[in-house]
Design a protein around this nucleic acid. Structure first.
Length: 681
DNA sequence: CTCTCTAGTATTTAGACAGCATGTC
DNA sequence: CTAAATACTAGAGAG
């Protein structure tokens, strides 16, 4: 059926007037949603799931209701946001609500579609459960994420809340292929739409001992082994994506590709900011090769993704960052490692992850066919690889049963008023997948001990078996931090303020994942703990000390590359850590304002310094737009020490400073002037 | 006595979410 | 439980 046959005439504005024929699974999903049935669509990636979203969002809009689109990653939220913007042509107002994103105000009431991460959705719901009255549709992308041990429970909480609070809201789940899709559907009162359809056909094979095995047939690959497959792909105009299981492997593999291929990109033409890449990296890019992992800075990653999309980078080697992230397809995908070290063992990676990686093969519109190959290093791994391809699927399992998550959730339920007694909590949990998969009566003890813990630590109070959150409990829940973190921060406030020491306690909260320390770090870590009279030499404490030391370098303006080199980590690791610490230090500031007013200013400044990575003395001047830690420092060192100094400066005096063009100098002076005026008003 | 090589041993290992602010008759 | 690559170290042997 054509798009125009099932949608209002104006709808084609969304698709640039392309009136394509719907795929069968799209048609089926839309039909079921229109019958007011929840739906779970399970199809491979790149098979038009977004169009189902578009149509159902517009249907919902016409009924005067809002839609929410939940995704697992911030990068995916931004990608969806730019895709869904085309709905603006129909008057549908789209926004996104993710942590860290402060451009459009996230007034739910003013928008028709809200794109959110699962955590943001969770947080929004328990801050103000009433917003649900405005919603008619919630789309949950990558719903199989429920199975993710660390982040799945937050998504499961959101869906359970929807089922518990407002079963009228239509749910559309989009999922990878999993074995128990029926069970998930029953839990959500949904019908399933399952299809193996792919927009670009996929050919899969296993590379084993110099042979490529496809459909049981062996083909000898020659001396270059799997590299010959990459060669083939590139020479016929394609690109290749190689997944590896460690950063070092990804980098090494990229380096080795430089020796195999030489595409001779005109480096000048690529418009890469100077100093974005180091010499070795720039050399790889010049050869059309690069690696991608979370140790790279955000700017580096964005640039690499762009160069790959534009086709300048032909071979990209990556860790799992690219498996679940933004859509970055390539004609040929090679999964070079199928095991990864975790929990003390080297284990085969999950089938869902393999699906995601291999699903990247084949660019719609550009490639007639995609090629996905799995590399097996041993006979045992050959069997594992065969298992992936013959479709032994994993089930989605609830991970909501950890005690710390139950504490977090029970506080959220009480704080939001969704549940106020044990019975309410049990009723809520009765709606979870956890309950659908387990005997929920077995958790009563866990709920009671969570309630006891929360009461004992003044997060909640009780009267006649009815619980309500204290101010402390409410703030903890709103800050979205673990109650245990909140207690650590509260205790920290009793200690005399010292940046280093406070950074240590920030790092010690369970919400901060600390840096790993090595044997070679012992000496200075123990010295740090000694110096602060901390007698705890546990693993957590040592990790927190290392993290505190690195953050301390960051807030003292040590160049990010110097920190990276000294501690053997990547610039991306420092950015990520600073961003978590920013969140926790903000929480500390808020707790400080509640318990200990005296410390308030110190805590606010510490938060700004972590956010921006600056010393105290330039906190003010980096408020000027276009001035960050680097430019702020240069201005300060050249005598421009306040907003006033800069607002009244002459353009030539600032443009004389290294790194400041005339235009930039003008802009900065103007911005400083505006900022100044604002203060005078 | 010192340097070098080697065999055996120790070490290391992916990723990434959250808060805030704002509007207005 | 189901790894593999690399960095480190002690000790032998050469000069």
């Amino acid at each position: 059926m054509k798009l125009s046959e099932i949608t209002p005439s104006e709808f084609l504005k969304v698709t640039d007037n392309n009136d394509f024929t719907l795929y069968e699974h799209q048609e089926e999903a839309v039909a079921k949603l229109r019958e007011n049935k929840n739906v779970i669509v399970s199809v491979p990636t790149a098979s038009g799931k977004t169009l189902i979203g578009y149509i159902s969002i517009y249907d919902t809009y016409l009924k005067g209701k809002k839609s929410m689109y939940i995704v697992p990653l911030r990068s995916l939220a931004m990608e969806k946001f730019s895709e869904l913007l085309s709905l603006r042509n129909l008057g549908v107002k789209v926004t996104m609500s993710i942590g860290d994103y402060d451009v459009p105000p996230s007034f739910v009431k003013n928008y028709d579609v809200i794109i959110a991460t699962s955590e943001r959705a969770d947080s929004m719901l328990h801050r103000d459960p009433d917003i649900l009255n405005y919603f008619g549709l919630v789309i949950i992308d990558e719903i199989h994420m429920i199975s993710d041990p660390s982040r799945g429970p937050r998504l499961e909480t959101v869906i359970s809340s929807l089922l518990y609070l407002n079963p009228e809201i239509l749910l559309l789940g989009l999922s990878a292929t999993v074995s128990n899709i029926q069970e998930i559907a029953e839990w959500m009162n949904a019908e399933t739409v399952v299809s193996n359809f792919r927009a670009v056909p996929l050919e899969t094979g296993i590379i084993f001992k110099g042979n490529l095995i496809t459909d049981g047939e062996k083909k000898h690959l020659g001396r270059d082994d799997e590299v010959s497959l990459i060669k083939e792909s590139i020479e016929s105009g394609g690109q290749a994506l190689v997944f590896r299981n460690s950063r070092r492997n990804a980098e090494k593999y990229a380096q080795s590709m430089v020796n195999f291929f030489d595409f001779q990109n005109d480096f000048e033409k690529l418009e890469i900011p100077p100093d974005l890449f180091n010499e070795a990296q720039a050399n790889m890019v010049a050869h059309g090769v690069m690696f991608h992992h979370a140790g790279l800075s955000n700017d580096q990653r964005t640039m690499i993704e762009k160069l790959f999309k534009q086709g300048y980078i032909k071979i990209l080697t990556a860790t799992p960052t690219l498996a679940a992230g933004v859509n970055l397809p390539a004609r040929t995908v090679i999964i070079r490692d199928i095991t990864r070290f975790s929990d003390g063992y080297s284990k085969p990676i999950s089938g869902i992850e393999i699906q995601q990686m291999i699903g990247r093969a084949g660019r719609p519109k550009y490639d007639k066919k995609g090629y996905g190959y799995i590399y097996a290093a041993s006979p045992g791994m050959l069997r594992v690889a065969e298992g992936y391809l013959t479709g032994e699927l994993e089930p989605v399992i609830s991970r909501m049963d950890s005690n710390s998550l139950i504490r977090f959730n029970v506080l959220a339920l009480i704080s939001s008023g969704i549940a106020t007694d044990l019975k309410g909590i049990q009723d809520f949990y009765g709606k979870t997948l956890l309950a659908a998969q387990n005997d929920i009566d077995g958790y009563e003890l866990a709920f009671e001990s969570a309630l006891y813990f929360l009461k004992d630590n003044d997060f909640i109070t009780e009267e006649n078996d009815i619980y309500s959150a204290t101010k402390f409990g409410r703030l903890t829940s709103d800050l979205y931090i673990d109650p245990v973190s909140s207690l650590i921060l509260k205790k920290c406030l009793d200690l005399e303020f010292s940046e280093e020491l406070y950074l240590y306690y920030i790092s010690k909260t369970p919400d901060m994942l600390t840096f790993n320390y090595r044997a070679s770090d012992y000496e200075y870590l123990e010295e740090f703990l000694d110096r602060h009279n901390i007698s705890d030499f546990s693993e957590e404490s040592m990790g927190a000390a290392k993290t505190a030391i690195i953050l301390n370098e960051w807030i003292n303006e040590v160049p990010i590359n110097t920190i990276a080199e000294t501690f053997g980590i990547g610039p991306g690791d420092i950015q990520a850590k600073a961003s978590s610490a920013d969140w926790i230090s903000y929480s500390l500031y808020r707790l400080g304002s509640m318990f200990d007013k005296e410390n308030e200013n110190n805590l606010l400044h510490l938060n700004i310094r972590i956010k921006e990575g600056v010393k105290e003395e330039i906190i003010r001047i980096i408020e000027i737009p276009q001035v960050g830690r680097v430019r702020g420092r240069r201005l300060y060192n050249n005598g421009f020490k306040s907003i006033d100094d800069i607002a009244n400066a002459r353009v030539e005096d600032i443009s004389r400073i290294f790194g400041f063009s005339t235009k930039l100098a003008k802009d900065i002076i103007e911005n400083a002037g505006k900022l100044n005026n604002r203060y005078y008003r």
